[in-house]
Simulated assay, not measured.
Amino acid sequence: MIEVAKDFLVRSFAPGSTIALLLRTESPLKTTQRVVTLQQALAPRYLGWLAYQNHHGANVYVATNPLRSGSRKRTKECIAAVRHLYLDIDEDGDARLAALRASDCVPTPSAILSTSPGKYQVLWRVDGFDFGTQEIMLKRLASAFGGDPACTDCNRVLRVPGFFNRKYSPAHSVAVEYPSDATYSPADFRLPDETRFATLPLRGNARPKSCRKDTHSERDWAWACHQLAHGKDAGKLTHELAARRTDKPNPLYYAQRTIDVASARQWFLEGAPMDDVITMLESLRRFQLPAALCSARAREIAGTAQRMISRKKFA
């Protein structure tokens, strides 16, 4: 758990950064903020303290952007630079995330956090954004993909993966995936003005017409489902799809994700229970991913596939 959180902080902030950590309990309602250097936050004793607080009911958050050195607060004036763009997806999360993954209007996310079943926080590591440009782009992202329109401030916080989301019972382990290691510029985001966007529908995976250039991802999905339904090996299909989609920033990640969701869907259609699907997903990637990530990822993918089938039944 601590190693997942440590890795996320190292990926998210440059050495020497000042960051803001937030602890919030639901009952009794209490918020505690700490402004520390990245090095302080990465210390085993400090991470252990965060884990202790999380175990005793505190949710753990971090500001999306670094603070100015010497800051004591997390106000907009204290933000040093724009490090990330982000998107909060709280409703119909699986369909909206699928639309985002398939869109040609935005680059591959740097990180995708599964904060609770069907809810996600998406991050892009960026450079070249000023505060005004960031806020405009955050509004366009929320409008295009049905994200929370209130989450457009440069000093916004997000959950730290590796810890538990204590808002729910039972608590949900916050998982993370890293689809891309790239750093993006404003030119990589090709979203039209938010006033011309209609929010994505609650059902289906429709995308704004102005963004739709091709249907490669949809064809890949149909191909994967067809091949798996006819008994083809998931490992071989993964390598074949990765070789076909070298246009993706991370072809192997894309292929693994597509094949694994399609595999889980197929197993559910064949009548496998949830626990068996999770076990089979873990087995499929156990030699390619760290154990903790592999387990959390398997649960998230199984939940995604199950909800996809449920939507088809009741749509």
Rank of each mutant, 00 (worst) to 15 (best):
M1Q: 07
V4W: 01
V10S: 10
S27W: 13
S27N: 14
P28W: 07
K30M: 14
K30R: 14
T32M: 09
T32E: 14
L38Y: 05
Q39C: 04
P44F: 00
Y46P: 02
G48P: 04
Y52R: 15
H55G: 11
Y61E: 05
V62T: 11
L67V: 04
R68Q: 15
S69N: 11
S71D: 12
A81D: 13
H84M: 12
D88K: 03
D88E: 04
I89F: 01
G93N: 03
L100I: 12
C105M: 14
C105T: 13
A111M: 07
I112P: 04
L113I: 11
P117V: 05
P117F: 04
P117I: 03
Y120Q: 04
V122C: 05
L123R: 08
W124C: 09
D127G: 08
D127T: 08
Q134M: 15
L138H: 09
K139T: 08
K139H: 09
L141Q: 05
L141G: 06
A142S: 13
A144T: 04
A144I: 01
A150R: 15
C151G: 08
D153Y: 10
V157S: 03
L158T: 13
R159G: 01
G162A: 05
F163W: 05
N165S: 09
Y178G: 02
Y184P: 05
D188Y: 03
E194N: 07
T195S: 14
R203V: 05
L228F: 01
L228R: 00
D233S: 13
D233N: 14
A234E: 11
K236A: 07
T238I: 07
H239D: 11
A242K: 10
K248C: 08
L252H: 09
T258K: 08
I259A: 03
V261S: 09
V261N: 07
A262L: 09
A264Q: 04
R265W: 06
R265Y: 08
R265I: 03
Q266R: 14
F268T: 07
L269P: 01
G271W: 00
G271D: 10
G271I: 05
P273L: 05
P273A: 05
V277H: 04
M280L: 06
R286Y: 04
R286S: 10
Q288L: 03
L289Q: 09
L289K: 06
A291S: 11
C294I: 03
A296N: 15
R299E: 14
E300W: 15
I301F: 01
G303Q: 00
I309F: 03
S310G: 01
F314E: 15
